[in-house]
């Protein structure tokens, strides 16, 4: 390797390692607080590594975790069903849009992408969903609104546009129906794109608090993020869910600081675990090709 290229290499790694640290340290700090003893926190503040290792926060959060489990269940259900349906729906429309010979291609693109720039606003949407569609306090209200996100459709369309048209053409000549081409040829070929969009969609569902903030009043439908939000200001969302300390922890102060962080870890963890499954498709799937409609 010529010397000329080596110095920038060092510089690049230095910058990247610093940025990587900044990505990891916040996670570590939250993790560390969740494993610290409350008394120590109140006395010495947070630290990057627990000074006094302590599991009280988890014992507290996981004692009688009925509500926590319920929230997990809702989040998982919404993420899985939502992602599946969304990818299917978006792949469908993206494929149609990617076909240069589709008659209404331009009109349909405009129809989809116009919504990226213009919307009816919070209030009309709320009125529609709660009074006309009657979706309030149903699990569907957490799923349906994100089934067709223009940005993801755009990503998928760009990806599908790169599938050589002659493959489709030859299938057509063989007499395959469009539906068959879509399911048997396009979907397998578009796997990296689909995987990427699936990951993003899943993230969006998992991390969503907005829909539950507006449309969920029933405790059995509260997802994790919303629960976490309510705890931010008021730890009693945790305390009243348990109302008391686990036996054996009688004389310990309520671990309000560390318990909050323990909850954050429980909510963030699953998505980090999911990522490696999608990673190999990632860069290829993120191609934003020609956006032109």
């Amino acid at each position: 390797m010529p010397l000329k290229r080596r110095i920038p290499q060092l510089l690049i790694h230095l910058v990247f390692i610093l940025f990587s640290l900044s990505c990891i340290i916040p996670l570590i700090s939250v993790l560390s607080v969740s494993f610290s003893s409350e008394v120590d926190i109140l006395k010495n503040g947070y630290s990057l590594f627990p000074r006094v290792f302590d599991l009280t926060a988890y014992a507290y959060v996981l004692y009688r975790p009925i509500q926590l489990l319920g929230a997990f269940k809702i989040s998982i259900l919404v993420s899985v069903i939502g992602t599946f349906l969304a990818v299917l729906a978006m792949a469908g429309i993206a494929y149609t849009l990617s076909r240069p010979d589709y008659k209404y291609k331009n009109k349909l693109s405009f129809y989809v992408f116009f919504t990226m720039l213009f919307n009816g606003g919070l209030v009309p949407t709320y009125i529609l969903i709660s009074n006309y569609l009657h979706l309030k306090n149903t699990i569907w209200v957490l799923i349906l609104p994100y089934l067709a996100v223009p940005w993801f459709i755009l990503l998928l369309r760009s990806f599908m546009q790169k599938i050589p048209f002659h493959i489709i053409e030859s299938c057509m000549i063989d007499g395959a129906s469009e539906l068959r081409i879509f399911f048997q040829i396009i979907l397998p070929l578009a796997k990296p794109g689909l995987a990427t969009v699936a990951l993003f969609t899943m993230l969006q569902y998992w991390n969503d608090w907005w829909l539950s903030l507006l449309y969920i009043e029933e405790e059995r439908l509260v997802p994790l993020q919303y629960m976490l939000y309510r705890m931010m200001n008021n730890i009693s969302f945790l305390t009243s869910s348990t109302n008391m300390m686990p036996p054996g922890l009688k004389n310990v102060e309520l671990p309000s600081e560390s318990a909050r962080m323990a909850m954050a870890i429980l909510a963030a963890g699953p998505m980090l675990a999911v990522f490696p499954f999608f990673q190999k498709y990632f860069v290829r799937g993120l191609t934003v090709g020609a956006v032109k409609g």
Partner: peptide, 23 residues
């Protein structure tokens, strides 16, 4: 057939993005 493939997303966008514009 292509329109059919696009239909589910078309409807979702219609309901959740265009209908509220009526308000």
């Amino acid at each position: 057939q292509l329109s059919l493939l696009a239909l589910p997303a078309f409807l979702i966008i219609f309901v959740f993005s265009y209908l509220p514009m009526g308000g």
